[in-house]
Simulated assay, not measured.
Amino acid sequence: MKTSSLNVTLLTTVAAVLSGLCITAHAEIQQLPTGAAARAELKKRFTAADIDGDGKLTREEAKGRMALVHRQFDAIDTARTGSVTLEQIEAHAHGRRARP
């Protein structure tokens, strides 16, 4: 009987924690910018990371400034130029290839 009660308590606790995580994740997703706001925020971050102002990010420029771009750099740099443009980052985010 004690094992059954312990299992119920454990399952209830796990369910409560998972429920809380789902609510938190949903709230965070709701706060993410979308559409024009997301594009403006991405452009702002890209411009700040583009240290030399050439309109492209090298792996080194992305490091520490745009962590996700840095981690996925090879997947974004489909042309293998050693740099990525804002258009390439957006295309990658939307699951398509940027125009050459």
Rank of each mutant, 00 (worst) to 15 (best):
V17Y: 09
R71E: 14
I29C: 08
Q72M: 11
T85R: 08
R97D: 12
A16N: 00
G53H: 08
I51S: 13
V8Q: 04
G64M: 08
I51V: 15
L10K: 10
A67H: 14
T47Q: 13
E61W: 10
R39S: 10
Q31L: 14
A62N: 09
R65V: 02
D74H: 13
A15S: 09
D54A: 00
L42R: 08
E87L: 02
E61I: 07
A48G: 09
D77E: 09
I23Q: 05
D52P: 01
A37Y: 06
H92C: 02
M66L: 15
E60A: 13
I89R: 03
V8Y: 03
M66K: 04
H94L: 13
M66H: 03
A16W: 08
E90F: 02
A37M: 09
Q31A: 14
G64E: 06
V8R: 08
T12W: 06
R39G: 00
T81I: 06
E61Y: 08
V17T: 05
A93Y: 03
Q30I: 10
I51E: 12
D54H: 01
A16G: 09
S5R: 11
A15Q: 04
I23A: 14
T9R: 13
T3F: 06
D54N: 12
D74R: 14
G55K: 02
A93S: 12
A93E: 11
A25R: 14
Q72A: 08
T3P: 01
I76W: 07
A49I: 06
A40R: 02
A49W: 07
V14T: 06
T81E: 10
D50E: 05
A79L: 12
H70E: 09
H92K: 07
A38T: 00
T3I: 13
G82T: 03
A36C: 05
Q31G: 02
D74P: 11
H70P: 02
K56N: 07
T24K: 14
C22F: 14
D54L: 01
E60V: 11
F73E: 00
V84C: 04
C22K: 10
M66Q: 04
M1G: 10
N7G: 05
T34R: 15
A36S: 11
T47I: 13
D54Q: 04
L32Y: 04
A98S: 12
G53I: 06
A37D: 09
A91W: 06
E41P: 01
I76K: 10
I76R: 08
G55T: 00
A79W: 09
T12G: 15
S19M: 15
T78I: 11
G82D: 03
A93G: 05
A79V: 09
V8E: 03
G35H: 02
T85W: 04
A38W: 00
